[in-house]
Simulated scan of single mutants.
Amino acid sequence: MKKVMVTILSLGVLAGAYGFAFGVPDQISHIWSDAPAEDAGPPAGAAAGPPGQSRSTTVVLAPLEERSHTLVLRTIGSAVSLRRADVVATEAGEVVQTNLRANTMVERGDVLLRLDDRTQRLSLEIAQANRDQAQATVTRYETLNNNGSSVVTDVALSEAEVALRLAQANVGLAEVALENRTIVAPISGRLGLSEVSVGDNLSSGDTVVTVDDTTTLLAEFEVPERSFGLLAEGKPVFITTPTHAGQVFEGSITAFDSRLDSITRSVTVQAEIDNAEGVLLSGMTFAVRMLEETAALPVVPATAITWDRGGAGIWVAAEGTASRVPITIRYRDGDLVWIETDAPIGAQIVIEGASKLRDGAQIAVAQPAEGQGI
């Protein structure tokens, strides 16, 4: 008997706890109250309706719209001059003159440096004298031969002509050797820093200075594998640099690699940037941005999407009820989500209150707040 009383008391405590936490069920409250169940009003939080109708959920609706999405790729790169050259000494010797001031603009052919050329000038004079002597011999032999003299044979004349050709070639070699003592700018551009000064002795192969033609820069950057589809020759790119905050420079893609890097899983891209004003310098670090407009896709607020075991979905309203339609999420941008769905464009979708819905649930439509919608 004691066990029975304990059991009844335990059940009473559980019933009281349930009623305190969840409220008294309608059927029991109708029994306790004098009023019949048919006259009882709707439960708190439910919309009023005719007797026997299930409770409705208040939601906010908006038509399903579609619009394109702007894909934005951001990456970091650096730039070099499209045309650049390292000026290298081809001869050894002592420097006797320099025009190597850094950041000076030079034209192709301008003299940058001269080496001691006294030996080469003397060699040229010797070669020229030998040529003149060989020329005089040939001229004399030809004159005698034309006058019918038998003193000069055809063999002697031929040998004199060969000697003249050799002498002329030696003059050419001496002129080249003399020209090599003067180093000129191979391209037009801006000079870099140089450590060469008058009195230095250069060896063949020593780098004298670099020349950068910065009128056009070549930006090089990496694009991840997932964004490879954005690449195309001629596609515009937008470039910024901390040196010129707020200023955007436009370029275009000229080339990209034919394979991905096996470690970074990215592809190297090159783009040309017009720098006719000389604002940018070779070696600068750039923030690169590329844009791509997608085809029009359905777009919904993030609040319209719910999740279950099957994945993401939206609620479509029709004739006072809501049904769930599965979706595939394509892009996100702030509070908007671009999706793929079988729901037709223009259909009324739930953008507020979707988390409280169940399939076939009755809905009551509330007016959206000002500025609310897709």
Score class of each variant (00 low, 15 high):
26 D>Q: 05
233 E>A: 11
56 S>H: 05
260 L>N: 06
360 G>L: 03
301 P>N: 08
161 E>S: 11
145 N>L: 13
5 M>K: 14
250 E>Q: 15
95 V>Y: 10
94 E>N: 09
332 R>P: 02
103 N>Q: 13
90 T>M: 11
245 A>W: 03
260 L>A: 11
74 R>V: 08
331 Y>G: 02
78 S>D: 12
351 I>L: 09
248 V>Y: 05
313 G>A: 13
355 S>E: 14
37 A>Q: 12
320 G>L: 03
341 T>F: 01
74 R>H: 10
31 I>D: 01
337 V>I: 14
217 L>S: 02
105 M>G: 04
57 T>D: 05
268 T>R: 15
117 D>S: 15
344 P>F: 04
216 T>L: 05
72 V>D: 07
75 T>W: 00
172 G>K: 15
100 L>I: 05
182 T>L: 07
116 D>L: 12
27 Q>W: 08
41 G>P: 06
1 M>Q: 11
262 S>A: 14
111 V>W: 03
42 P>Y: 07
292 E>T: 03
75 T>H: 01
357 L>K: 06
109 G>I: 06
114 R>K: 15
93 G>C: 05
220 E>D: 10
175 E>Y: 03
133 Q>T: 14
113 L>D: 05
13 V>N: 11
116 D>Q: 13
31 I>L: 10
80 V>A: 08
239 I>M: 10
84 R>V: 03
267 V>F: 04
50 P>M: 08
266 S>R: 10
204 S>C: 07
338 W>R: 10
336 L>D: 11
89 A>E: 02
82 L>T: 11
235 K>M: 05
15 A>Q: 10
110 D>G: 11
181 R>A: 12
186 P>R: 10
66 E>D: 15
352 E>I: 01
233 E>G: 08
325 V>W: 00
274 D>G: 10
259 R>W: 07
143 T>K: 14
310 G>I: 00
73 L>A: 13
286 F>R: 00
334 G>W: 05
167 A>G: 05
105 M>Y: 09
167 A>R: 09
100 L>C: 10
112 L>P: 02
313 G>H: 01
241 T>A: 07
237 V>S: 08
231 L>V: 11
225 E>K: 13
318 A>Y: 09
2 K>C: 01
66 E>F: 04
14 L>M: 15
70 T>E: 15
263 I>P: 00
241 T>L: 04
363 I>Y: 00
112 L>A: 08
294 T>K: 05
159 E>R: 13
9 L>A: 15
70 T>K: 14
229 G>C: 00
44 A>E: 14
347 A>M: 08
288 V>Y: 03
274 D>N: 14
343 A>V: 00
134 A>E: 04
55 R>E: 08
339 I>S: 00
105 M>N: 08
259 R>Y: 08
173 L>R: 14
148 G>N: 10
180 N>T: 00
190 R>C: 00
262 S>V: 11
158 S>Y: 02
